[in-house]
Design a protein around this nucleic acid. Structure first.
Length: 1122
RNA sequence: AGUCCUGUAGCUCAGUUGGUUAGAGCGCUACACUGAUAAUGUAGAGGUCAGCAGUUCAAAUCUGCUCAGGACUACCA
């Protein structure tokens, strides 16, 4: 006996998954899918490295499904797609995890635990969940090479990163500067955003706030007076600015205004000195500062915009220090977009050394920060790292800026803030002083208020590459486009220099060594270079031994690269020697981990020390495709792009898909805290990866957020996979009976029945559309198209209408055509769907191929993507099948209304024919319609005047022509009589009346459809009408009864457990109602039920009572015949 | 605060270059069908296309504003 297509009792996706997973493992199918394309054009994919110190979530299934889909698709399209896995191993989350685990804080590192021990713990912790991750990768069917991943903490990787940094250094793109960062003077450390976001950091405190008066300088006086159009400026004129941190006033170097904000010049009196003065503030805030209710007297003497105030200069408020550079550019009014009229005066006191915004606007305007010479030529701010004013800053020198910082010594009665307030009041430079409650961040460890303080950092001069980054970005294909042009494009437009420095322990050290005075520095770009530099240092007596003594340059073996460690603390122990013999020590910071991951295109290959050709010859760079969450826009997407642009003058990727978030079914973000996080392993186990992936991909576009609802997976499982599986099972059932194994020649297209030609046509349209969707990175469209085809066209139309062809008759050309057609559809669907649902489709493909051996390859993932043959696509055919579907749907609806079941044959339907094209089309599908509807004949009703027609204006044609008269035209057209419509049809044009003006309209200006056939049961839809003859003659009635009986007999066969092919002997109890029906349809009944013998009997024992309808019932019995 | 995304039926989503009855699936109700049967068909109920204004003969679609949800970035003088 020939082998059979496997048939299944039920659809169990997780079970199939296991089977396929084992097969992949045994055959190493993934490796094959790459090796089979050896020599083919490469398709370059970059894997964004996950951090293995956290557990994967359901959103990782989403992100990785997208990556997997396109890699599999491109493999099917004939490309070789290498996929190297990677791990992101450095960074704050790792360190915080380790700190928590060891029960220590950042301060304890180097004290309670050595840096060395700490880093060993990090190295261990970071790879803790690799097994879990690898398992997820396997369970969800994500194909990526996990055997040789790149790991960012490995020396080779670090060496490549150093090399990249050196390229930037050589281009003068690395510099040391400062940024304003949250800083805790008591802890002596900068605070990360993460630390600032700890609960309890922001607390309400009452601070002394001052609205200070900055006197307009003599030089600007004349210009200022011109703004006072409605009065005279007093001798004392001031700009008002509010501050909650008076201790920063000595560091003021500018005032910032909003260019578009309205300001007023007001004459009033100083509250503390009662002197007459002119002050400037935002008009919107006047009521707040000059409350009329309280009897404050004032007079508005002029109004202006912020732009009018720009470049006015003022006298320094507290002249206790002078900026060491560009003094002449200080104490000016500058513009700032961040200025609002919600608080303060609309004029912002700007101290570039103690405010992040301040530093930015000041830099843009060329205003110097208040940095003074420390005696060695270095600029330092007025406040030191302990939070204390340096000496010689007027009366506040040596004092802490906040009383909270005094620990050993008692705090003075008056804080610096209060002292300054009093001083300003006395000098008539305070407009108002009051206590104000606001929320201010505190150090979560020391409980003391934090300072915003300028801290040294290393920067990449990204601003210098702005133009080039933008230009290159314009060549990248973003999905969705808006992320690229909008979010990413705007980010590039406003790009800031990239702060590389991180004051942590576990990461890649900055490879820069400097002399103490900073006059000489060296950036190390390779281990070899470092080794040579160490040798020089040892020779100069600065180090005793060379820590890289065991390293052999040019030896790329793992052993050689394991003879040292580039991390802290080892890197810090290296002291190099400068050109004049001075020691150079390493800059203390580590680099931003985002630089690690942005370096992966090169570092994953240890470029340029190994695999140089991969990058230089564009074999593995730039990527053709990457995908990651939209949250990586300013993360990985940016760092890849920045490094690619700056080091290689190239894009790092050509196509990028940024996917949205996975939310819970209520649209809430998933979190462990809320307990609404979905366990990916449980989901995959319960529903299988195919249904899970299919659901995620087809439910929403990848870039839209996905509301993850398990019911959706159930639906997909039933709807798509259930239908596909049913269709396969149906095929297998009959193909096994007929031993169909695709041995026959493919029946020529034109010899196949209409229905087969139609589904072939649809299939090839599908191939073209799905190919297009995948090619444009739209997996959602691809999946939906496949699903619609499978469910609506293949299953619910093709198979439904073809059922009889499979079970009736001999193994003839018609039957073979049906098998070939259905087989091809199933096989094609398997291939088209395989990128999204890799397991089930492989099973399906394998089951089909196991009998036919049409493909020599034994996995769907190794074959070629089918080609769409435009010769097979017949639009006219698709059009007429659509007519058949419409007619069928209408007639079924009529039957329903009249309560005539489909099994009751009817005599005829009539369809009005409006044009010959329609008639031709209808004729070709007549047989299909009749059999589907169980009707004997179809009459073509040519226009004889009996039809009632409906006319509708064609707005698209008429609109542009008639414009404003459109409404009139529409009304006139709708009002046309049957005679007028007939005239239009015959003459090709007709005249309508437009408020007395006759106007011609053409046939193309309207849509005419028949609506009614008087005296008949009629349905209309989309311009087609159908009339149904519902008279049931005696013979029709008998036939109907016969059909009902066949149905009952079939049920009985099935209930009795008979095989589809078993022949039976059939007996029916005679009675008046069934006698004629059986006699007159004798052959029919025998054929349908495979009855070799049929008797009408008077008496029956053990018969099964059956009811045909309300009035007809009898008994039947069957037994098997041999 | 800025940038970007989203808002269409109870739920999940379609809706081409603006064109006049806004669609599908699920769910619900009713009826039917039955050798694919944990399937299927037909019908019904269900919409202020988030809101307001504008452009236009015509707006779910284009423009502006507002509201709600989300993401990122920056900050809070």
């Amino acid at each position: 006996m020939a082998s059979k297509y496997p048939e299944y009792k039920q659809l169990n996706l997780p079970h199939f998954t296991k089977e396929v997973m084992e097969k992949w493992e045994n055959d190493d199918t993934f490796k094959q899918s790459i090796s089979i394309r050896e020599g083919a054009k490469p398709y370059v994919f970059f894997e964004g490295p996950p951090s293995a110190n956290g557990l994967p979530g359901i959103h990782h299934v989403m992100g990785r499904a997208i990556k997997d889909i396109f890699c599999r698709y491109k493999t099917l399209k004939g490309y070789q797609v290498n996929r190297k896995a990677g791990w992101d191993t450095h960074g704050l989350p790792v360190e915080l995890g380790v700190e928590k685990e060891l029960g220590i804080t950042k301060e304890d590192i180097g004290k309670k635990i050595t840096v060395e021990e700490y880093n060993i713990a990090c190295r261990k912790a970071v790879m803790r969940y690799t097994d879990v991750w690898n398992n997820l990768t396997k369970q969800m069917g994500y194909w990526v090479d996990m055997s040789d991943p790149y790991v960012t903490y490995e020396n080779k990787y670090i060496e490549s990163v150093w090399w990249l940094l050196k390229q930037l250094h050589n281009q003068n793109m690395l510099y040391k500067g400062y940024t304003i960062q949250p800083y805790s003077p008591k802890a002596g450390t900068g605070l990360s955003t993460h630390e600032l976001n700890q609960p309890g950091t922001y607390r309400d405190v009452k601070d002394t706030t001052i609205v200070a008066q900055f006197k307009i300088s003599t030089a600007s006086r004349e210009r200022f007076e011109k703004l006072a159009t409605e009065g005279t400026v007093e001798p004392n004129a001031f700009l008002l600015a509010w501050t909650t941190t008076p201790w920063t006033l000595p560091s003021n170097t500018a005032l910032t205004v909003g260019p578009k904000i309205d300001y007023v010049l007001v004459n009033t009196r100083n509250k503390y000195t009662d002197e007459a003065q002119t002050v400037v503030m935002a008009e919107a805030l006047m009521a707040k500062h000059l409350p009329v209710k309280k009897g404050v007297e004032f007079e508005v003497i002029g109004k202006c915009k912020g732009t009018d105030l720009l470049e006015l200069t003022y006298e320094q408020l507290l002249p206790w220090a002078t900026p060491m550079e560009d003094t002449d550019k200080a104490f000016r009014v500058i513009p700032g977009a961040f200025v609002t009229t919600e608080d303060g005066t609309g004029i912002v006191h700007t101290a570039p050394t103690f405010g992040a915004d301040d530093a930015l606007v000041a830099r843009d305007a060329g205003v110097p920060p208040m940095l003074v010479d420390d005696g060695q030529g270095n600029g330092v701010p007025l406040v030191d790292l302990q939070g204390r004013f340096i000496e010689n800053v007027g009366p506040v020198g040596g004092k802490y800026v906040k009383n909270e910082y005094y620990v050993d010594v008692a705090a003075p009665d008056k804080s610096v803030d209060v002292e300054i307030a009093i001083m300003l009041k006395e000098q008539g430079l305070a407009f108002n002083v009051e206590k104000y409650e606001h929320s201010y961040p505190h150090c979560w460890r020391t409980d003391k208020p934090i300072l915003y303080y300028p801290l040294d950092s290393w920067f990449v001069k990204a601003t210098a590459a702005k133009e080039r980054m933008t230009a290159l970005n314009n060549t990248i294909n973003w999905k969705p486009e808006s992320t690229g042009t909008g979010r990413f494009g705007n980010w590039l437009e406003n790009v800031n220099d990239w702060n590389l420095s991180r004051s942590r322990f576990w990461g890649i050290p900055i490879p820069i060594w400097r002399t103490e005075d900073g006059t000489e520095s060296i950036c190390i770009g390779s281990v070899e270079e470092l080794k040579t530099a160490c040798e020089a240092s040892v020779a100069a007596g600065l180090m005793e031994t060379n820590p890289l003594a065991d390293f052999t340059p040019t030896d790329m073996s793992e052993e050689n690269y394991n003879t040292f460690d580039l991390h802290k603390p080892y890197a810090d122990k290296i002291v190099l020697v400068s050109s004049n013999g001075e020691p150079m020590v390493r800059e203390a910071d580590l680099i931003d981990v985002l630089f690690d991951s942005g370096s992966m295109p090169y570092a994953q290959w240890h470029y340029p020390f190994e695999n140089k050709e991969k990058i230089d010859n564009n074999e593995a760079f730039p990527a053709d495709f990457i995908a990651e969450g939209v949250d990586q826009t300013r993360g990985w997407f940016y760092t890849l792009h920045a490094i690619g642009t700056m080091c290689f003058d190239s894009v790092a990727y050509k196509n990028v898909v940024s996917n949205g978030l996975v939310l819970d079914k209520n649209g809430q973000k998933m979190s462990k805290r809320l307990g609404n996080a979905v366990d990916p392993f449980k989901t995959l186990e319960k529903y299988g990866p195919d249904a899970t992936r299919w659901y995620m991909i087809t439910n929403a576009q990848p870039w839209d957020n996905l509301k993850f609802d398990e019911d959706g997976i159930t639906e997909v499982q039933r709807k798509f996979f259930g239908t596909l599986y049913n269709t396969y099972n149906f095929f297998a059932l009959y193909a096994n009976i007929d031993n169909f194994s695709f041995n026959e020649e493919l029946i020529p297209l034109q010899d196949r029945p209409e229905l087969d030609q139609w589904i072939w046509s649809r299939l090839h349209s599908l191939i073209a559309n799905v190919d297009d969707a995948y090619a444009h990175f739209e997996p959602t469209r691809a999946g939906r198209l496949i699903q619609e085809f499978t469910v609506d066209e293949l299953s619910n139309w093709y198979v439904r209408l073809s059922r009889r062809r499979f079970w009736k008759g001999d193994y003839n050309a018609d039957k073979i055509s049906a098998y070939q057609t259905l087989y091809t559809c199933l096989e094609t669907i398997a291939i088209l769907s395989s990128p999204i649902a890799p397991f089930f489709t492989d099973k399906l493909f394998g089951d089909l191929n196991s009998i036919t051996k049409r493909s020599t390859l034994d996995s769907v993932h190794l074959v070629d993507f089918p080609a769409s043959d435009s010769a097979i696509i017949q639009e006219d055919l698709e059009e007429r099948m659509s007519i058949a579907q419409k007619v069928s749907s209408m007639v079924l609806s009529l039957r329903k209304k009249e309560r005539i079941r489909v099994r009751q044959p009817l005599q005829k339907i009539m369809v009005p024919i409006l044009d010959t094209t329609f008639e031709d089309r209808l004729k070709k599908v007549e047989a299909l319609i009749l059999s589907e509807l169980n009707v004997k004949e179809l009459e073509y009703l040519h226009d004889t005047g009996v039809l009632v027609k409906q006319i509708k204006p064609n707005f698209k044609a008429l609109g542009p022509r008639f414009g404003k008269q459109m409404k009139l035209v529409a009304a006139a057209v709708s009002a046309m009589t049957q005679e007028q419509i007939a005239e239009l049809e015959q003459q090709g044009k007709a005249s309508i009346d437009l408020e007395g003006f006759p106007t011609d309209i053409l046939l193309t200006d309207v849509e005419i459809s028949s609506q009614d056939i008087p005296g008949w049961l009629v349905a209309s839809e989309g311009g087609i009408s159908v009339a149904l003859d519902i008279t049931i003659s005696e013979s029709l009635r008998e036939e109907g009864i016969a059909r009902e009986m066949v149905n009952r007999i079939q049920n009985l066969r099935k209930d009795s457990g008979l095989e589809v092919t078993d022949r039976i002997s059939l007996r029916i109890k005679r009675n008046e109602a069934v006698e004629n029906a059986v006699q007159n349809n004798f052959e029919y009944i025998c054929q349908e039920t495979l009855a070799g013998k049929l008797e009408l009997v008077d008496m029956m024992e053990n018969g099964h009572a059956i009811e045909v309808d309300e009035s007809v019932s009898t008994e039947i019995s069957i037994e098997t015949m041999n």
